[in-house]
Structure formats: structure tokens, C-alpha cells
Design a protein around this nucleic acid. Structure first.
Lengths: 157, 157
DNA sequence: TCTATTTTAAGAATATAATTCTGTTTAATT
DNA sequence: AATTAAACAGAATTATATTCTTAAAATAGA
């Protein structure tokens, strides 16, 4: 039932996750094929959900969002309904770009992108700490970023 | 000297970071303009570096990379040359998708995407722990992800 | 305030790429 | 080996990106 990726699919995915504006022609040439099968494969990869979406990656700092912060959070209550509510609330904050439920020293790890320290403090005070059952909150302020990509390693799949 | 974004630019960026396959026509229509100025603005945004690249976002789990782990690391030595070397090494690991130097309880926070726990253990043993001057290493294993996006909040810039 | 200059947009024209279609080959199935 | 289904090539078409020309608007200087 489930569609299985072959080596050609994997190569197409690898190319598109690096640059999605490549033409089917250039991909076809690199793989020694013609555009039709490449086109059909891409459509299939989209339809089957291997490709979720196509996005422009922006330069946060240049745009004025200079601060990235990771926030580790523990909750005091762990009822299912509360956890769901917590995630829903977090999802609605545009400053939060990631929210992971984790095992380890925290319950949740958030990633947040804002203008600066003041905007961060404002977020903490006027948004985050208003959520109930909040336990420990620990911030990791990003000083510099050595690597930040979406490209996952397809060499082994 | 520096180019300043106006409201139209911001709207274009917001649309493209949500879906970069939109046609200039559809953007133009939504903004009540024609394709030429939209096209020129996009080219300018690319040239000036506000748009870094266009990428396909893949479904990690579907592709077989089911595990995301955040790794907090402290180093024992902090010489400049060593830090640089550390970052360089980390950059070469395809499993690592993010590497941030942070303030707080760790020196570095890494984000890693791999097949499963075994692949993760293999990475730790055969790659990470081979790096010198490694201090404390703490892992946060992702159990579930409530939000994971590249879309930064442009409503305020 | 007026004029010159620059920027921005519109609209048409062109080039390029995506998409569709048809026929052929290859692989898989029975 | 015959039949069916997939995958591909190549041409044809459609849609979109890109360029070009002109007009309007905004800006700066006198």
C-alpha cells in the first residue's frame, strides 16, 4: 500500500530541500532523464506527503528579528486535557516557531524568534507566564548560530 | 544605504514564507497590483538577502527519520580556536540540523534528526563523543512535536 | 512652488518553464 | 510467453516568469 522511495526519489528530494526553485529540466539533466518522469515523481512526492510544502527561508536578523531563544518548560499538572490546551495556546503565539514535548529535564522545549531582549521579556511576562500550571522555565539565549537548516540527511534512507 | 522594507515587501515575504510556489500573479491580485512590481520586489528581496533560499519542507517521519533530539552541551575548554573547530566539526555532521551557541546552562544547543534511537546512540558514540574537550552532554528526546515552522512573525516589523 | 530626477507601477511582449498528451519501452504478474 | 501495469521519452501545449516600454507618482533641489 505505502509508496516506497527509490534512489531517484531520494535524489529529487535532496535537491528540492536544498533549492526548490530548480527547474525539472535541471533535475532531469543531473539524473540523466527527461522532464516528464521527474515532473510526475515530484507530483507524487507532493501528493503522498513526502513534500509538505515549499517555503522561502528568510534572514531573521536582516528582517529585524535578531533574537532566538530556546525555552525549557516543566508543567505542574500533567492531565491530558491540560497538555492539549497548553500546546494549542503555544501554537497561537506567532513568536513561537517550535514546540516539542520532550523527555529529559523538561516537559516542553520551545523555540522562539523575536526582535530583541525586550520583546522577549514582553513575551514572557505578558504571554507565557499567563498560562496556568507553569512550573520551571529555563531560557537558553542564542548568542550565535553555527548551523540552521531544514535539510535532513537522506543519504541513508 | 540599507534598503528598508515597506508594508508591501512585508506582505510578500509573509506570503512566500508560507508558500513559495505561489505565482506572482496570485500575490499581485491579493495586493491589488500587477505582476511587474511584485516580480521586481521579489528579485530585490532575494538580491538584498532578505530571502535566503527556497526550499521544499519534507516530512521527516514519513521519510524514515523519526527521531528529533535536542542536545545541550558544555565544553571544558573555551579557547576561541577550539570553539571554531567545534562548530566546524558539528557543521559537517549531516544529522545535525541546528547548532546554536547559547548562554544559560549550556554552551551549545544542537538539534539532530535521525532514524531512531539506535541511530542516535550511534551518533553519540561514534561521532559526538570523539570531539575533544566535551563536558556535560544532556539530551532532550522529542516525544511529539506540536509546532515546527520556519514562519517568523512579520506582523510587527 | 516649480522643475528635474528618481522611483514605482502598469500593460504589453517575449522567453522560459510547467504541464499535458501520446506512443514506446521496460518491468512485473500470471 | 502473454498480459498488464509502470515508467519513460519526446513533442505539444499551457501557464508563468521575465523583460521592455511607457506613464504615473514621489522625491529632491533650486
Amino acid at each position: 500500500m505505502a509508496y516506497t522511495l527509490d534512489h531517484i526519489d531520494t535524489q529529487i528530494l535532496a535537491m528540492l530541500q536544498n533549492n526548490s526553485n530548480r527547474t525539472t529540466k535541471s533535475i532531469a539533466d543531473e539524473l540523466g532523464m527527461t522532464t516528464s518522469p521527474i515532473f510526475e515523481r515530484i507530483k507524487k512526492l507532493e501528493k503522498e506527503g513526502y513534500i509538505k510544502k515549499y517555503v522561502a527561508v528568510l534572514d531573521n536578523k536582516k528582517i529585524g528579528l535578531k533574537l532566538t531563544v530556546f525555552i525549557g518548560i516543566t508543567l505542574q499538572g500533567h492531565t491530558r486535557s491540560y497538555l492539549e490546551k497548553f500546546v494549542t495556546e503555544i501554537n497561537n503565539f506567532p513568536e513561537i516557531v517550535e514546540c516539542h514535548r520532550v523527555s529529559g529535564n523538561f516537559d516542553y522545549l520551545l523555540k522562539l524568534v523575536v526582535e530583541d531582549i525586550e520583546a522577549y521579556e514582553h513575551f514572557i511576562i505578558s504571554k507565557l507566564t499567563l498560562l496556568p500550571y507553569l512550573g520551571n522555565v529555563q531560557s537558553l539565549i542564542t548568542l550565535s548560530t553555527g548551523k540552521e537548516t531544514n535539510e535532513i540527511d537522506l543519504s541513508r534512507v
